[in-house]
Amino acid sequence: MTASVAMHLSDGVLDASTSVLFGAVAVAWLAVAAARGRIDVDDRTAPLAGLLAAFLFAMQLLNFPVLPGVSGHLYGGALAAILLGPWVGALCLSVVVVIQALLFADGGLTALGANMTNMALLGTAVGFAVALAARGLARRSRAGLLAVAFLAGLVSTVAASAGFVVEYAIGGQADVSLGGLAGVVIGVHAVIGIGEGVITALAVGAIVRVRPDLIYLVRTSETRELVAA
């Protein structure tokens, strides 16, 4: 939730070959997501995704109070995955990450691949995997859905930070104890993830009350037909 070290990596933290490697990972993953999300097949998906990317972007601009004087913002991996599914969710967030790097110099240009991998791809994939595994609980009751959304928000944040640890292990600069680094980074993000989880759960809870058919995770095949009219 907060501006943290493991999110929005800057240039120079990873070496050049690792940066290029994760650029390739991100591009390949996005190609798969575009195909599986059928974004080029249905002429409606990309315009809708554009508006939802704008929503995620606006959410990231919004600061939530964490403690008096301390605020953070949502990064939205699990929220995107639950609402839009793992593929379209990943596409939306990847555009957000790229535009933030180009327009605001937020995150290094060479670190773009790693940042997309952590925030747009790992975050949505792991968030969705958690939600999918607990889908039975999510469908049982409103409280169940909120619990699943919370868990997905928490775990996706930790997963994104774990991505950073892996990248640092491959191409980081200094000879630091990886166990120590992992402990600190993942520990900090577990705390941040609680906030992410709370916000994710409350937002999903507000949507399910009004338009459950819009939530990718819970909608059934019939309602999907209805929405795609």
Binding site: L48, L51, L52, A54, F55, A58, M59, L62, F64, L74, L83, V198, I199, L202, A203, V204, G205, A206, I207, R209, V210, R211, L214
Partner: peptide, 14 residues
């Protein structure tokens, strides 16, 4: 309230 506002905002965006 902020988070519920986020839910409403999602619906409007959709």
């Amino acid at each position: 309230a902020v988070a519920r506002g986020a839910g409403t905002l999602f619906l409007r965006s959709y």
